[in-house]
Design a protein around this nucleic acid. Sequence first.
DNA 1: CCACTTTCCCCCACTTTACGCCACTTTTTT
DNA 2: AAAAAAGTGGCGTAAAGTGGGGGAAAGTGG
Lengths: 155, 155
Amino acid sequence: MATFIGDYTCKVDVKGRIILPMAFKKQMPADARDHFVVRKDIFENCLVLYSIEDWNRQLEKIRARINPYNREHNKFLRNFFKGTAELSLDNSNRMLIPKKLLDLIEAKRDVVLAGQDGRIEIWAADIYEKIGMPADEFANLAEKLMGGAINEIEE
Amino acid sequence: MATFIGDYTCKVDVKGRIILPMAFKKQMPADARDHFVVRKDIFENCLVLYSIEDWNRQLEKIRARINPYNREHNKFLRNFFKGTAELSLDNSNRMLIPKKLLDLIEAKRDVVLAGQDGRIEIWAADIYEKIGMPADEFANLAEKLMGGAINEIEE
DNA sequence: CCACTTTCCCCCACTTTACGCCACTTTTTT
DNA sequence: AAAAAAGTGGCGTAAAGTGGGGGAAAGTGG
């Protein structure tokens, strides 16, 4: 499984294509470097780009917990898939992002592709500059989620 | 099994035919690309298009839980099969949707074919634009169904 | 049951649109 | 300075859309 590290400012061209930074491509296994799924993030005003591997992993998790014959689960599934798109890199290493997804995150020209473990977030560049938490708030959250004695973590 | 990703606006022609977007066809195994079952969705005002593979899988699930000699089960079965139709793609990659199913979902000219895991939903385009949950409501539902600490998920 | 009529569906041809390919330029990295 | 990466833009074809014709299927009546 890929791990994406780093954030990169990129341009959206007039046809809605973005070049995938080579650094990200190099962080992927050789046989799975040009196939992605993109969708709107659940919590934030950005897109999430999944490698097809990670997408399939997310899908397995969802299939394990979601029953389409349950009304509420059905609704979750529909909203999860709404506005997804499957992407491939072209020979110039670009991917064509559906205009309606770019519009959803108010991206016009400059975007940031931000690695986040197994996925890449795509932000309008101006919005990305504003998103950080205050340092002390993040420190508290980090301790809450990851703090505790080392044995607790490895259990 | 196919996984359908992406949503596409398509036209219904005067004979009730819809072109299956090539992206969906490419998401299917080569030997099962032109055979579908369509029926009205259980919960929402849309149609569901099953690949024949996925239809058979749903049928197995149903056979495992539904006993036609039980009156209530019998009623479920009759309603589940009511208004189903088997479809094939023609040489122009179109499928003929029964007019009464198009009428059921108030589809006239513009429809959306929305991939959702193993199935494709067909919506009147104007209705599809209105179905999304507000972002925070969907975030809450996602957290409710898929959230929790990491150990809960992996259990 | 069969012949005839009507309807509808599949095939095919043509047009329009959009997307992938490719070449070239500029910028960044080595 | 050279190589690699990012950016730009035009062309050709795949895909989507449109529409008509002929024959298969459905319907009707004797």
